[in-house]
Design a protein around this nucleic acid. Structure first.
Lengths: 197, 197
DNA sequence: AGTATGAGTTAACGGTGTTAAATTGGCTGA
DNA sequence: TCAGCCAATTTAACACCGTTAACTCATACT
């Protein structure tokens, strides 16, 4: 029916092969080097095949981005199960964020259109991003049950500190040892969390 | 000798025309839409002419980036002349940073490779960026003359907060009124500056 | 046997950065 | 006046890009 001799792969395998290859090229050569033809070569198909799985390169990038947010969400929820103390929760979730950006920088890049990664589909209003935002907002709320506006503001602050430090660390990665950056990150987050009491 | 009838322009005029056009396209259509041919069309030349002024697109982007840092530096120094109090200085410089990113987002983008802007030349170790870093570091030092490492850490923190908030504001610009973001920015920076005492 | 289906390919369009070759036009020297 | 040169500028080309239409071809069914 469908089994070709080249290399029998299910539709799902091919699809995830595309995603995997895109991420692989991005990791090794940067997002600006990721092209449909290069992906097709790697999965041993011609370029138009990719379009049977993704309507456009934009949609492919969006998929990878969503995948990133879903992964982050899972990790967040793992932390929620592990700890009950809001202070501990927020601190550990911040470390998860750091680890994620450090271990999979190419995913972090495509999530926020950094360093040549460019996906035109808007990040905000994506339910995957909303989900991770909500988790953090909820933790902050359980901390200090203030008005929605206050929570929003504090979440805004938390995200800015975390994301800002991650970005600067990426920028200086050849200049400043990562351990040092991580120490500053931990200290600053800890101070922020303390400050919420 | 050199005056052509098309439109007599000096070498310097043509060069700045290229830069101006690049920024203009970036502002209106985003950096991913900036192409050598489009720039050439706008300045009424053919594409190869651009290469007589800039060795590559990368170098052109780098020039615009450096210009951005130089502009920022000038504004910083204006503040230094205006105020002597370190607290006031750091606060006002933070506002300058905010204003700059708000008024010329396309420049801010190319400075840090955001949203499709991508320049492969490294930002760090560029003396223009070093200059603005030094100004802020010096202010922090005059605040609390601690060790070089402490200053470095505090500068790292300041930059992260400022840059993080600016990025998140750009991300949410259609979601959240900019006045609200600005209020949070001011508050957070003020708190940071106070915290330095 | 003949045809329809579907997977996969090739070829094409208009775009990109970049460079070599060709062209133009004005000036100089004979 | 005309040949020749030089500099400015353009055309044409290369190899890539995202994307789509048209084509091939083997299989399955009538």
């Amino acid at each position: 029916m469908e089994a070709i001799e080249r290399k029998p792969r299910s539709r799902e395998q091919t699809r995830s092969g595309i995603v995997l290859t895109a991420k692989d090229i991005a990791r090794r050569e940067g997002w600006q080097a990721v092209s449909i033809r290069k992906i097709a070569d790697a999965i041993e198909y011609s370029a138009p095949i990719v379009y049977e799985y993704f309507d456009s390169k934009d949609v492919l990038l969006d998929e990878i981005r969503s995948e990133g947010f879903r992964h982050l969400r899972q990790e967040y929820e793992r932390i929620l199960k592990l700890y009950r103390d809001p202070e501990k929760r927020l601190y550990e979730i911040s470390l998860i964020q750091w680890e994620f950006a450090r271990r999979q920088p190419e995913i972090y890049q495509v999530m926020y259109n950094l360093d040549g990664a460019y996906c035109t589909l808007p990040v905000y209003q994506s339910c995957e991003m909303q989900a991770v935002s909500d988790i953090v907002s909820d933790i902050i709320f359980s901390f200090i049950p203030k008005s929605k506006e206050s929570i929003r503001k504090l979440y805004f602050e938390w995200w800015s500190i975390s994301h800002g430090m991650i970005m600067l660390t990426m920028l200086l990665k050849d200049q400043q040892p990562i351990e040092q950056s991580e120490q500053v990150y931990r200290d600053t987050i800890r101070r922020f969390v303390r400050g919420l009491r």
